[in-house]
């Protein structure tokens, strides 16, 4: 078995390295990926779509962060279904792991005292105080990353993961129960669904104004006092979509941790 694996790996690796010589050099601004496909003679066949993204995005959407604009607007379908994949992963973990009942049929993971947070336990005090100070800052930063996703690096996925990590930090530092008091199972599964609903709902809302699904320019009727109604409609719709993505990602990240760490019982955790 090991020999077959060795042969397969070296064969794949050597074939890939054999092809490396035909790639453009690292950091070449004129590579096909950056400027579009070329003939062997060096003649440009067509312009790369990323060129257009860079030159046109600010004009048509008023969003400086091209990555967010491409993610939420140009590739809106793709991102919507990526979010659905994250949601489906959360549902799959729920279906695989979640067990209901008092859990008497499975042995406990470790000897648990009744009260895991003991007064006077110094290591617990240090960790608890640090988390008390850090978690609000982490959550504030997550909200900043979500809300400024179209002006600075960030967006729904990144901010959602940071937000989910803050709840996971609470679950690790104290115990899963206190994290679930903040963010119960009912709440996070609802939040995950609401995130998808916001995203798809914005898409359907565009259809009411006789445009395509997720064609945010249709929402310009809401931009009454703006100088650039269509552009600003796209800009704000991107923010809405990012918020929906952030809801789903936050909830599913915490759901994955909570289910994995407690073997689906959502009781004691690690």
């Amino acid at each position: 078995m090991k020999w077959i694996a060795l042969i397969a790996v070296t064969l794949t690796g050597s074939l890939l390295l054999f092809g490396v010589g035909d790639f453009p050099e690292w950091g070449d601004p004129h590579s096909p990926a950056n400027q579009g496909p070329k003939l062997k003679s060096g003649e440009q066949v067509s312009k790369a779509v990323s060129q257009d993204f860079l030159t046109e995005t600010y004009e048509v959407t008023k969003v400086p962060n091209v990555v967010t604009a491409v993610l939420a607007d140009y590739r809106g379908y793709d991102t919507m279904f990526e979010t659905v994949v994250v949601f489906a992963a959360g549902l799959a973990i729920f279906a695989i792991l979640r067990v209901f009942g008092d859990g008497s049929d499975t042995p406990p993971m470790r000897a648990v005292e009744d009260d895991t947070f003991v007064e006077g336990d110094h290591s617990r005090i240090i960790i608890g105080t640090t988390c008390k100070l850090l978690i609000p800052i982490i959550q504030l930063f997550a909200l900043y990353v979500i809300a400024h996703g179209h002006y600075s690096p960030g967006g729904g996925f990144q901010g959602g993961v940071i937000m989910g990590a803050s709840f996971i930090l609470l679950a690790i530092a104290r115990d899963l129960k206190s994290a679930l008091d903040w963010f119960s199972e009912k709440n996070f599964m609802t939040l995950a669904s609401v995130g998808i609903l916001i995203y798809a709902g914005l898409g359907v809302l565009c259809q009411f104004f006789e445009r395509n699904f997720l064609d945010y320019g249709a929402l310009k009727v809401f931009m009454i006092s703006s100088d650039h109604p269509e552009q600003m409609a796209r800009s704000y719709s991107m923010l809405g979509v990012e918020i929906g993505v952030a809801f789903t990602v936050t909830a599913i990240m915490f759901a994955i941790y909570a289910n994995l760490s407690s073997r689906g019982e959502l009781k004691e955790g690690l």
């Binding site: 793709d78 990526e82 994949v85 992963a89 996925f157 599913i252 990240m253 994955i256």
Partner: peptide
């Protein structure tokens, strides 16, 4: 998106 879906 690939990173987040990879985590999921």
């Amino acid at each position: 998106t690939a990173i987040v879906v990879g985590v999921a």
